[in-house]
Amino acid sequence: MDLYEIVRGPLAWAALLLFVLGTAYRIVSMLIEARRDKVVYPYLSLKYGLRSLMHWLIPFGSVNMRKRPVMTVVSFAFHICLLVTPVFLLAHIILWDESWGLQWWSLPEAVTDVMSVLVVGACAFFLIRRIVAPEVQNVTFLSDYVLLAVVVLPFLTGFLAYHQLGPYRPMLILHILAGEIMLVAIPFSRLSHMFFFFFTRAYMGSEFGKVRNARDW
C-alpha cells in the first residue's frame, strides 16, 4: 500500500468516522450538560430560536453585519464556498462514485475553481485582519493561526493539484491529508462553531425573545 492508498483508504475512513462520531459526541455531551444549566431547556423556544437564526444566516440581517459590510461579504462568501465546494466538486463526486457508487449533481469546474480561490482569499483577509486590526490581534493566539492554516490548506492544495502546479501526486496526497486533518479538527477545536453556532444562536434568540421580549440582531 503506498502513501496515496493510505490517505485515500484507512485514513479517509478514520477521518470521516472521527468527524461524525466526534461531532455526535460533542453535541450529545452538550445536550446532557445543558440539563445542569437550569435555564437552558426551559428558555428554549423554537420560534424565537429560528427567528434569531434567520437574522444571522441572511447577509446583512443584523445591525453589526450592516456596520461592517466588507467583513459581512467576505465571511458569507467564505462560509458558503467552504461548505459548498467540497460537496459539489466534480472530482470529489467521482471519488464517491468509485467507492460507493454514489452520485449527485456537480458544479462546473470553473465555478468550483473560483470558489476555492475565494476561500483562500478570504483566509488571507482573515489573516491580515488578525494582524492589523488591534481588537482582533489582542485576542489572537497561536491556535488561531493554526486553525486558519487547517482551513486554508485543503483548498490551497486542492487548487494546486487541480491545476497540476507543482508535483501532482505529492500535492494530491497533501490535499487529501489536509482535508482529513480539517475534518477531524472540526469537532475537536473551535471549528466546532460549525455546529455550535446553531445552538448558541438559538439559545440567545430564545432568551431574548421568549424571556425578554426583545430582538438580538
Partner: peptide
C-alpha cells in the same frame, strides 16, 4: 455585545 457576537455568546 450579545447582539453583536455572531454566535450570540452571552
Amino acid at each position: 455585545c450579545s447582539m453583536y457576537c455572531p454566535f450570540g455568546i452571552d
